[in-house]
């Protein structure tokens, strides 16, 4: 019986060490919060540009916030590299996934915003390959993929459920034909990215403090 207890304790010990080590290399969630805020600012700029029929400064705002966001991501990746923090295979896949989807979403946001400006100025005849109103639903679907894969890699049901939120929201946005898609998308960003990001960040701070 005593031997059995020892075996049980040993397995528990292994489990705890693995859990602690993984938690130390997990993403803190801060980048989700920062990128979420960036997108909310950009998308609300699009909204106000749309309702005021003035797209003169929209691209500059997007340019500024995207450069800031990518600079933050670059510095943050460099910091992790400097600390020689180990990586799990899952984290590698996750980082690659978010970089790839981030680049895709940046391209979509820029291309569609340029198109909005052109729609108003009538420089180029309409329609184009991608409808301007597709900016928010397409980004929602991409976020759905990223959240689903991230949730599956980390075996986290909460993150996987966020993907369903993005996909359902994406379907709703596809059927909307007004500038209201922007504040709705901003709300989704707050609910499905910024708030969960804050939750992950707080948990990661507690873990690193050893609580």
């Amino acid at each position: 019986m005593e031997e059995k207890n020892k075996a049980e304790l040993e397995l528990e010990f292994i489990k705890n060490i693995i859990k602690d080590s993984r938690e130390k290399v997990e993403d803190s969630g801060l980048s989700s919060v920062i990128w979420g805020i960036i997108v909310v600012i950009g998308i609300m700029t699009n909204y106000f540009s749309g309702i005021n029929h003035n797209w003169n400064y929209t691209l500059y705002v997007w340019g500024f916030i995207l450069v800031s966001g990518w600079t933050y991501s670059y510095l943050s990746a460099r910091n992790v590299k400097k600390k020689n923090m180990p990586e799990t295979f899952g984290l590698k896949v996750q980082n690659a996934l978010w970089s790839a989807s981030g680049i895709t979403m940046t391209i979509i946001a820029l291309v569609c915003t340029i198109q909005y400006k052109r729609d108003i100025s009538d420089f180029i005849p309409y329609p184009y390959i991608i409808n301007s109103m597709a900016i928010t639903p397409v980004i929602s679907l991409i976020l759905g993929i990223s959240y689903y894969v991230t949730g599956s890699i980390n075996d986290c049901k909460f993150t996987t459920r966020l993907a369903y939120g993005w996909w359902i929201g994406g379907i709703v946005l596809f059927y909307m034909k007004s500038y209201n898609t922007f504040p709705i998308f901003a709300l989704m960003m707050i609910l499905f990215q910024i708030i969960p990001g804050i939750k992950y960040y707080r948990r990661s701070k507690l873990n690193s403090a050893g609580k």
Binding site: E10, F13, I17, I18, S21, K92
Partner: peptide, 12 residues
């Protein structure tokens, strides 16, 4: 055992 458990959880 702890060393091995740490190394099994991360690549290196």
């Amino acid at each position: 055992l702890a060393i091995m458990s740490v190394l099994i959880s991360v690549e290196e």
